[in-house]
Simulated scan of single mutants.
Amino acid sequence: MDVKQLTNSTTLHWKKPKSGTPAGYYVLARETDSPVWQKKIFTTGLSIKVPLSKDNYIFAVQTISQSGNPGVPVIPGIAK
């Protein structure tokens, strides 16, 4: 997660899995006080800018296999 800019949007970057070729990725988002994921955004890229504030949402990235099966959501760290 890119935290260099203090904006109301959030940029996330991730790496491809070490094995296999995913069909894409879901970026999951939930408000900080919600126990469930509230938004799911599909992308085939390795980064995305979402119009949601990193101060108000928790994010995760989930790999989607070629057969459509989702992987385990991974909560991002701070980009270096």
Rank of each mutant, 00 (worst) to 15 (best):
I48R: 09
T63S: 04
S65W: 05
K4H: 10
A79P: 03
A79W: 02
V74S: 13
F42G: 09
P70A: 03
G77A: 11
S65H: 07
K15N: 15
F59D: 00
Q38G: 12
E31C: 14
K16D: 07
H13A: 06
Y25L: 03
L6H: 13
P35G: 06
N56A: 09
K16P: 00
P73F: 00
V74G: 09
Q66C: 06
N69L: 12
V27Q: 01
Q38V: 05
K15P: 02
P76A: 09
W37F: 07
H13T: 10
Q5A: 09
V50S: 02
T63A: 02
Y25D: 04
K4Q: 14
T63Q: 03
N69C: 12
I78E: 13
I58Y: 00
V27W: 01
Y26S: 11
K15Q: 14
K39H: 11
E31Q: 15
V27M: 02
Q62C: 04
Y57Q: 12
S47G: 13
D33L: 08
L46S: 14
K15L: 13
P76T: 07
P22N: 05
V3G: 02
K15T: 15
V3W: 04
G45Y: 06
L46C: 13
T7Q: 06
F59N: 00
N69A: 12
A60F: 10
F42E: 11
S47F: 12
G71T: 07
R30F: 08
F59A: 05
T21I: 13
K80F: 07
P51T: 00
G71N: 07
F59E: 06
I75N: 10
W37C: 02
I41N: 05
P76C: 11
S9Q: 14
K54Y: 07
W14K: 08
N69P: 02
T21S: 11
P22S: 11
T7P: 01
V72H: 05
I41F: 13
V27Y: 01
Q38I: 04
K15G: 08
Q66R: 15
K54P: 01
K18A: 14
S67Q: 08
I48K: 13
G45N: 09
D33Q: 10
I78F: 10
W37T: 05
S19L: 13
F59T: 03
L6P: 09
L12D: 01
Q38R: 12
S34I: 08
N56E: 14
P73D: 00
K49S: 14
L6T: 15
V72E: 00
S9W: 05
V36I: 13
L6A: 15
V72L: 08
F59V: 01
T21G: 06
K40L: 07
R30I: 08
S47A: 14
K40N: 09
T43L: 06
T7C: 00
S65I: 05
I41E: 06
S67F: 05
K54I: 03
Y25S: 05
T44L: 03
